[in-house]
Design a protein around this nucleic acid. Structure first.
Lengths: 206, 206
DNA sequence: TGTATTTTGTACCGATGGGTATTAAATTAT
DNA sequence: ATAATTTAATACCCATCGGTACAAAATACA
């Protein structure tokens, strides 16, 4: 699928490339891009450096592939929440979903995309720009959905879709940081509930 | 004041130590702790490494002194907002103040404290813990203020001070990230206004 | 005029960063 | 078997990291 080179000649690869990519994602998710060293990566992936470079190119390309894997997961926050018909349920789903997923112990805490941008000095500028572009794309999905809600009369007249979308991403980023710093599910869910109540009261007709 | 060693014997120091500390703060503010190298620091401070180590100890201690400088500024967000009598004005002041200060072009974008935690791998664990402790102290100030407001009857009965404080810090962290990523004053102020309206509607008696 | 004391600049230290050259090992095709 | 091809492991490359040894320079005191 992601890597479908049927190299049927030569010595066969001694590791599962998709599994290795998942391990790499976990490390980047936990430590960000610059906070992750090749030694950490190779150890987590169970391979040596030359194998990593042969299979994935370099650290940067490995990161991009890992982020692709992250964003294409079917149980993504956006994919689930956007299934709701009413914008009120979308907003509730996004906030509660973020609080829940970001603190899920079955994987690193917080959002992999958000966590990755954090530790980017001027060195890895391309990483920064790419991640920012992806985040902007997600924000645009919010703007589009809220604009549609405004058109269909679900939102208050004085509620601007762009501002509402910005508020949502602000909360996501805050949730991601708090989760990474050890906040509990309960704490974030309570915050999400309060935020949702405030937003729905102010922005959504009921 | 901060460094009042009257070393009146020996070769006099060739640079202003307080000014140098301000420059160091600016660099940490922009790049975080691990994202800042000694070369960047010495260049910004206009001194060489041995001078830095003689004056400030090491990178870690320099960071702590820079953060002290940051937190003790009289025009701090909290110090200003907490002067208001009514909790509604405190909340409005904190949110609008954060949006405004975090995007102020006269210094690096975002909150120095929040930005510093971001790029902390397991390496600099002491930095992480110290910054987390300081952030927790600030959050406690919020909890105390909101608890007082609850007692004095300014808050709704179902509004928990801890949750409200968490929501505020969530927004601060989100604002800091967005500001660091280039969000404009206007954008953040609009978001802050919407957030304030929602919070006041849901949490504060009017 | 020393002498003690402190700062400054240069040049360096070991450790770690991302990345690679090279050779041995394992497989398919001839 | 043997050649061609691909992966694996070791050992290395250079740049940068935080930090420091050392000697020259600049001051106060005797």
């Amino acid at each position: 699928m992601t890597t479908s080179k049927a190299a049927c000649v030569g010595r066969p690869r001694g590791f599962d490339i998709d599994l290795a990519l998942e391990q790499a994602l976990n490390v980047f998710w936990r430590n960000g891009y610059e906070g992750t060293s090749l030694n950490e990566l190779t150890e987590a992936m169970g391979i040596k450096k030359p194998s990593l470079y042969a299979a994935f190119g370099n650290k940067e390309q490995l990161f991009f592939k890992a982020i692709d894997l992250y964003e294409n997961r079917p149980d993504s926050l956006f994919n689930i929440a956007f299934q709701h018909e009413h914008v009120a349920d979308v907003i509730r789903g996004l906030l509660l979903g973020a609080a829940t997923q970001f603190t899920d112990c079955s994987h690193p805490q917080g959002c992999a995309l958000i966590n990755s941008t954090l530790s980017c000095s001027e060195a890895s500028e391309s990483i920064k720009q790419t991640v920012l572009a992806r985040k902007a794309k997600h924000k645009q999905r919010l703007v589009d959905r809220f604009t549609q809600a405004k058109t269909s009369g679900e939102l208050q007249a004085d509620c601007e879709p762009e501002v509402l979308a910005s508020l949502m991403t602000t909360l996501f980023q805050g949730f991601s940081m708090q989760a990474s710093e050890g906040a509990s599910v309960d704490e974030l869910q309570q915050v999400a509930a309060m935020a949702a109540e405030g937003i729905l009261t102010v922005c959504v007709k009921r």
